[in-house]
Deep mutational scan, measured.
Amino acid sequence: TSIVNVSSSLNVRSSASTSSKVIGSLSGNTKVTIVGEEGAFYKIEYKGSHGYVAKEYI
């Protein structure tokens, strides 16, 4: 489990790309479970499925 480190919110994306669809967002200090990594993104558990967040904010 890791913590989201942002002051406002962090986009959760459908794939490991800044141009991919935003499927949701997480607020600062939210706990997330990392299940993998791809480039500059972590794959996380998100709403019963998976999403991707930028590593620099975790």
Rank of each mutant, 00 (worst) to 15 (best):
residue 1 T to C: 15
residue 1 T to Y: 07
residue 1 T to V: 14
residue 1 T to K: 06
residue 2 S to L: 14
residue 2 S to P: 09
residue 2 S to T: 14
residue 2 S to M: 15
residue 2 S to N: 10
residue 3 I to G: 10
residue 3 I to E: 08
residue 3 I to K: 07
residue 4 V to W: 05
residue 4 V to S: 08
residue 4 V to Q: 08
residue 4 V to D: 06
residue 4 V to E: 07
residue 4 V to K: 07
residue 5 N to A: 10
residue 5 N to G: 10
residue 5 N to S: 12
residue 5 N to C: 15
residue 6 V to N: 09
residue 6 V to R: 04
residue 6 V to G: 11
residue 6 V to M: 10
residue 6 V to D: 07
residue 6 V to W: 06
residue 7 S to Q: 13
residue 7 S to D: 10
residue 7 S to L: 11
residue 7 S to I: 12
residue 8 S to Q: 12
residue 8 S to F: 14
residue 8 S to C: 15
residue 8 S to I: 13
residue 8 S to R: 10
residue 9 S to A: 12
residue 9 S to R: 14
residue 9 S to K: 13
residue 10 L to K: 04
residue 10 L to W: 08
residue 10 L to T: 14
residue 10 L to R: 05
residue 11 N to C: 15
residue 11 N to I: 15
residue 11 N to F: 13
residue 11 N to K: 14
residue 12 V to P: 01
residue 13 R to H: 15
residue 13 R to C: 11
residue 13 R to P: 02
residue 14 S to V: 13
residue 14 S to K: 13
residue 14 S to A: 15
residue 14 S to D: 14
residue 14 S to P: 04
residue 14 S to G: 09
residue 14 S to R: 08
residue 15 S to D: 12
residue 15 S to W: 07
residue 15 S to N: 09
residue 15 S to I: 05
residue 15 S to P: 01
residue 15 S to F: 07
residue 15 S to Y: 08
residue 15 S to M: 07
residue 16 A to V: 04
residue 16 A to M: 04
residue 16 A to N: 04
residue 17 S to K: 06
residue 17 S to P: 00
residue 17 S to V: 05
residue 17 S to I: 06
residue 18 T to D: 13
residue 18 T to E: 14
residue 18 T to L: 15
residue 18 T to W: 15
residue 18 T to P: 14
residue 19 S to M: 09
residue 19 S to R: 09
residue 19 S to D: 14
residue 19 S to W: 07
residue 19 S to G: 10
residue 19 S to C: 12
residue 20 S to C: 05
residue 20 S to T: 03
residue 20 S to N: 02
residue 20 S to Y: 06
residue 20 S to E: 03
residue 21 K to R: 12
residue 21 K to H: 10
residue 21 K to A: 13
residue 21 K to Q: 11
residue 21 K to Y: 08
residue 21 K to W: 08
residue 22 V to G: 02
residue 22 V to N: 04
residue 22 V to P: 05
residue 22 V to C: 08
residue 22 V to A: 05
residue 23 I to M: 07
residue 23 I to V: 07
residue 23 I to Y: 02
residue 23 I to N: 01
residue 23 I to R: 02
residue 23 I to H: 02
residue 23 I to L: 08
residue 23 I to S: 02
residue 24 G to C: 06
residue 24 G to S: 02
residue 24 G to I: 05
residue 24 G to H: 03
residue 24 G to R: 01
residue 24 G to N: 02
residue 25 S to R: 14
residue 25 S to H: 14
residue 25 S to M: 14
residue 25 S to Q: 15
residue 25 S to F: 14
residue 25 S to P: 04
residue 26 L to S: 02
residue 26 L to K: 01
residue 26 L to Y: 03
residue 27 S to A: 14
residue 27 S to M: 13
residue 27 S to G: 10
residue 27 S to T: 11
residue 27 S to W: 08
residue 27 S to Q: 14
residue 27 S to Y: 10
residue 27 S to I: 10
residue 28 G to F: 12
residue 28 G to S: 13
residue 28 G to R: 13
residue 28 G to P: 15
residue 28 G to H: 13
residue 28 G to V: 13
residue 28 G to L: 11
residue 29 N to H: 10
residue 30 T to D: 11
residue 30 T to Y: 07
residue 30 T to C: 11
residue 30 T to A: 12
residue 31 K to N: 10
residue 31 K to R: 13
residue 31 K to F: 13
residue 31 K to Y: 12
residue 32 V to Q: 01
residue 32 V to F: 08
residue 32 V to L: 07
residue 32 V to A: 04
residue 32 V to P: 04
residue 33 T to G: 05
residue 33 T to C: 10
residue 33 T to Y: 09
residue 34 I to G: 00
residue 34 I to A: 02
residue 34 I to V: 09
residue 34 I to C: 04
residue 34 I to E: 00
residue 34 I to P: 02
residue 35 V to W: 05
residue 35 V to S: 04
residue 35 V to T: 06
residue 35 V to P: 00
residue 36 G to I: 02
residue 36 G to C: 08
residue 36 G to Q: 04
residue 36 G to N: 05
residue 36 G to V: 03
residue 36 G to E: 05
residue 37 E to Q: 09
residue 37 E to S: 08
residue 37 E to K: 05
residue 37 E to I: 08
residue 37 E to H: 06
residue 37 E to N: 05
residue 37 E to F: 05
residue 37 E to D: 06
residue 37 E to L: 06
residue 38 E to Q: 07
residue 38 E to F: 07
residue 38 E to A: 07
residue 38 E to D: 09
residue 38 E to C: 12
residue 39 G to P: 02
residue 40 A to V: 07
residue 40 A to Q: 11
residue 40 A to F: 07
residue 40 A to E: 13
residue 40 A to Y: 07
residue 40 A to S: 11
residue 41 F to S: 02
residue 42 Y to H: 02
residue 42 Y to E: 00
residue 42 Y to G: 00
residue 42 Y to D: 01
residue 43 K to Q: 06
residue 43 K to C: 09
residue 43 K to Y: 05
residue 43 K to P: 00
residue 43 K to M: 09
residue 44 I to R: 00
residue 44 I to C: 01
residue 44 I to P: 00
residue 44 I to G: 00
residue 44 I to W: 05
residue 45 E to G: 03
residue 45 E to D: 08
residue 45 E to L: 13
residue 45 E to S: 07
residue 45 E to N: 08
residue 46 Y to T: 01
residue 46 Y to L: 03
residue 46 Y to F: 14
residue 46 Y to S: 00
residue 47 K to L: 12
residue 47 K to C: 14
residue 47 K to T: 04
residue 47 K to Q: 12
residue 47 K to A: 11
residue 47 K to V: 05
residue 48 G to V: 03
residue 48 G to Y: 04
residue 48 G to E: 07
residue 48 G to F: 05
residue 48 G to I: 03
residue 48 G to M: 05
residue 49 S to I: 11
residue 49 S to T: 12
residue 49 S to K: 10
residue 49 S to H: 09
residue 50 H to W: 14
residue 50 H to A: 06
residue 50 H to E: 06
residue 50 H to Y: 15
residue 50 H to G: 04
residue 50 H to T: 09
residue 50 H to S: 06
residue 51 G to E: 01
residue 51 G to S: 02
residue 51 G to M: 02
residue 51 G to F: 03
residue 51 G to N: 02
residue 51 G to I: 01
residue 52 Y to W: 11
residue 52 Y to G: 00
residue 53 V to E: 00
residue 53 V to Q: 00
residue 53 V to T: 01
residue 53 V to N: 00
residue 53 V to L: 05
residue 54 A to M: 14
residue 54 A to P: 15
residue 54 A to K: 13
residue 55 K to I: 06
residue 55 K to G: 02
residue 55 K to D: 01
residue 55 K to T: 03
residue 56 E to G: 07
residue 56 E to V: 11
residue 56 E to M: 11
residue 56 E to I: 14
residue 56 E to K: 12
residue 56 E to N: 07
residue 57 Y to R: 07
residue 57 Y to H: 14
residue 57 Y to F: 12
residue 57 Y to K: 08
residue 58 I to S: 04
residue 58 I to F: 13
residue 58 I to N: 04
residue 58 I to T: 05
residue 58 I to A: 04
residue 58 I to L: 11
